Simulated assay, not measured.
Amino acid sequence: MTPPSSRPREARLFRNNRSQAVRIPVEFELPGDRVLIRREGEKLIIEPFAKPATLVELLAAWQRQPPLGPKDQFPEIEDSPATPETIF
């Protein structure tokens, strides 16, 4: 469940050795001690780090997914026969 949107708040930037850091206000606090960060244009997106699922957990999650509907299927593609090519 996504929390409701909130108004932007100003946050302080500071240096920690050779890295830049940001003090995150308490209402934006993230769980855990690691995050994922990426750039989208001029924005930095910070997300909670989620431990990768084990293969068993991943397969169990896939098994619970509803089957694909007709519009989710791949279109039929005419398969042309292979032709020999000369390689130099």
Rank of each mutant, 00 (worst) to 15 (best):
E42P: 03
A11E: 06
E27S: 13
E42D: 15
R38Y: 02
I77F: 14
P52C: 13
D33R: 08
E78V: 07
Q63C: 00
F28E: 04
K51T: 13
P25C: 09
M1L: 14
W62Q: 11
E29I: 00
E76M: 13
S5P: 05
T54Y: 10
V26W: 11
F14D: 00
I77M: 13
P84L: 14
S19M: 07
R39P: 01
L68A: 14
N16F: 03
I24T: 03
P67A: 15
L36W: 02
P66V: 02
V35S: 06
I37R: 09
M1P: 10
T2S: 14
P81V: 02
E27C: 10
R9T: 02
R15N: 11
G69F: 10
P4T: 04
S80G: 01
N16V: 03
F28W: 07
K71A: 15
A82P: 00
W62M: 10
V22Q: 01
E29T: 00
A53C: 06
K71F: 14
R39K: 15
F28D: 05
S6P: 00
D72A: 13
A53I: 01
E78R: 13
E27P: 03
P3W: 12
N16D: 04
P31T: 02
R34F: 05
S80M: 06
K71H: 15
L13P: 00
P52Y: 14
S6E: 04
D33E: 12
E57A: 06
A21H: 01
R18N: 10
P75N: 09
E29L: 03
T83Q: 15
S6R: 13
A60Q: 09
P84V: 13
N16M: 05
L59D: 04
D79A: 04
E10V: 03
S80I: 01
S80F: 11
N17H: 08
Q63H: 01
I37Q: 09
P3K: 14
P48A: 15
Q65N: 14
R7T: 04
E40C: 02
R15A: 12
I46N: 07
P70Y: 13
F88P: 06
A21M: 08
F74N: 14
A60R: 07
T2D: 12
E40L: 05
R9D: 03
N17V: 01
P70A: 15
I77C: 10
A61K: 05
I24V: 15
K71G: 09
K43E: 14
